[in-house]
Design a protein around this nucleic acid. Sequence first.
RNA 1: GGGUGAUUAGCUCAGUUGGCUAGAGCACCUCGUUUACACCGAGGGGGUCGGGGGUUCGAAUCCCUCAUCACCCACCA
Length: 853
Amino acid sequence: MKLAKNYEPNQYEADIYDLWEGSEAFTPKKGSHKDSFTIVMPPPNANANLHIGMGLTVAIQDAVIRHRRLKGKHALYLPGADHAGFETQSVYEKHLAKDGKSRFDFSRDELYAQIWDFVDENRGIFEKQVRQMGASCDWSRYTFTLDQKIIDQAYKTFKKMWDEGLIYRSERLVNYCTLHGTGFADIEVEHKEVNGKIWSIRYPLTDGSGEIIVATTRPETMLGDTAVAVHPKDPRYKDMVGKTVRLPLTHREIPIIADEYVDKGFGTGAVKITPAHDFNDSEVGKRHDLPVVQVISHGGLINHNAPEEYQNMDVSAARIRVVENLQKQDFLVETKDHLHSVGHCYKCGTVIEPMLKQQWFLDMKPLATEAIKVLKAKKITFYPDSKRQQLITYLENLWDWNLSRQIAWGVPIPAFVNIDDNEDWIFCDEVTKEEIEKNGKTYRRDPDVLDTWFTSSSWPYATLSESDQQQFYPNSLMETGGEILQPWVSRMIMLGLYEKGKIPFEEVYIHGYVMAEDGAKMSKSVGNVIDPMPVVEKYGSDAMRMGLISGRSAGVNRGYDNRRVEEARNFCNKIWNIARFVEDKLDQKPLKSFSPKPKTESDHWILHKLTEASDQINKNLENYKLSEAYDVLYHFVWDDFADWYIESAKTAPNAPILAHSLCSILKIAHPFAPFLTETIWQTLHPDDKSLLINQTWPKIGTYSKSKSDDFEKVQKVISEIRHIKTTLQIKKGGLYYIHAPFINLQSNLIKSLARLESVEQVRDGRGLTLISVDEKCWLDIDFESAERFSKQLAGQLGDIEKQIEILQSRLKNSTYVDKAPKDLVRESKDKLENLKKEHDLLSTQIAQYKGDL
RNA sequence: GGGUGAUUAGCUCAGUUGGCUAGAGCACCUCGUUUACACCGAGGGGGUCGGGGGUUCGAAUCCCUCAUCACCCACCA
């Protein structure tokens, strides 16, 4: 089989993936933990097609996995999908809305079943797309977050925490979205700056001795006020503490209390306290044992605890009415504009209402403390390291975690309450039943489900069987985007330590977001989301992967750049054509059957360069410098191998060296361009069942360093001549054809390239031609370009003189000679010597050139 | 309010403990009718590394300060 002229990725990619998947290549062999390498894929949401960010995820993770596999590790890349509880349900609700329905038209079980089908369909699409991107995952270990083993693990953990008193049930303020009808964890609330107003309101003292003026941004909540607070050391209000005020509009009598929480400098220094609808107020209320008056319902309407006038109004309407009435009754002192931060539902943008609710909470203190310890001890390496500190800060300020969600799509909370007293809770994992009997009593299931992060936080071990855990836990690398550092990475660390007593992974690599091409964040509502699949179809999966990796470093957000993908596509084609050239010289023998025997200087040089490149790429990949590794590969293959070695090898190709080099290039390029390299490998091993994916990283080649250096000297000469006028070219039959102005240089060059003893000269009006005696090689000298070059040479001479000056003054500086590292000083001296020589050479050349003309 | 990161060529970005004339890709200009490749080859132009100050023999790199832009966190009514 011959390689076609251009690389057309979509002709090969699907077949190649099947070839891999059909073999055992993706399944790691059994072995020790030390000899293994694991990445458990952060499960993408199973509710939608993949976007380009997943392309980057796969590109990075798969490159690392393939590299470790080539290095001889038992590499496991475990794929998965996330049911993404609330996320998925809200996507599905949008589907329902199109048909004019809402989730409240269905029972929980019906809804659950419908979403299950919906997700099942999408999961197929997503799995196919991950395959198209070339991810070398072990599909036999594929895990969905609603698989029984994950649920079992979640219940096991839940029970353990329950038994140890870490999980508790409590009526507390939670972040509540009145539109979605569910509570959230703190991390899910999005704070936005909002231009609001701040109102100052007169609260008259009941004893008629005056008034106190409070400032608030939410006047409607005053319907539920149960106190006014001032700072204990505030002289303005010292005498008022202990008195009571008559709450305007509702006319309830509430006390004035003193609490450290109040900031004397803000507003009027007096704060209204609404324990039912504000987190701070709730804390103050607890300290002072204040009553809690809830005036906003879970649907976001004012309830029966408020005066009738306001009942069933929504919050914003109530606010307007309250302000109007305050003004009418002369309680309003002033209104000012006020910029402040307000929590919003991250999905629908509804203002989050702090709402009193019975929920399950997890006490985070003990878990966080352990996690902070391992983070501070650097037991886990972070790329970039700044993310580690960020996590510590987060963990240090963590509040208890609200585990309850009032949605259908998720893992039911395995808790049942005694229907007689509504207080006696028992743990039971028979969650398919609504009610159970125990000890002659009836218990009803908690209708809520667990926060999706609670189940997915066991991901590093729950995905693995018992025996797998021996080999693959802790995982080697957790590679993920920065947006889930806090909600997910932190919790995996806490739960891993809690359940397994070990860190869940040894290294964490955080990639930045792929932004839209203009640098803005991609979002569905803006409509600038980039779909990776058309990119894969147009340029190939390899080009997309390399294009995303190229020039991108850990933790940094960057826009998608199609030029990078085109660059990578061209690179794929370059490798392809290198393979075609080499294929011609192989004489039908399999690529890997050659052992290299370097003959010429260039042979030694390319083996040296190859060794250097494979070494650097290896080191960069080990340190997760994907972009740098790719860069080394790109320039080695293109500049060194294609532009220098192949060009110089055209006259007398050394097949074993070409074959060996290509063989190595395929291996070191494989992590970046798996499809392309495997396609070439398969084509060049027609009668062989071996797979490139299973080969081993290239061994260090043997070469002579001095001969390699010799070739670099030749390169330098050639470069100089090219600089004069372009063409070092090979005619049919392998003739050199060179334009150049300098006889001496030319003669040397011809000799070094063609190893000739003598040359003949022919001169005409336009220039001078040098021809080797056997007429296999000649140089054509063009006076016109020589003229141009003379100016450049003069410039060059000037540059060298400047450098000499700098070096000389540096070396005259005694502090430099004393303080700078000795080898640096020596280097400077050597360099000065070389520059001087170069200067002399150039001067003579210029003189000679004038003679030539 | 607190924190983090960024600012380098026309564009998108590299530049790991301070040390070769600051790099790449794309774009631009000149040249080339080459059986590996025009998804190509050779060459070229283009940057006072955001401004200012400091430390140092030496700063894109360390410190201070100012400016602009991102992002994250947060219970100041």
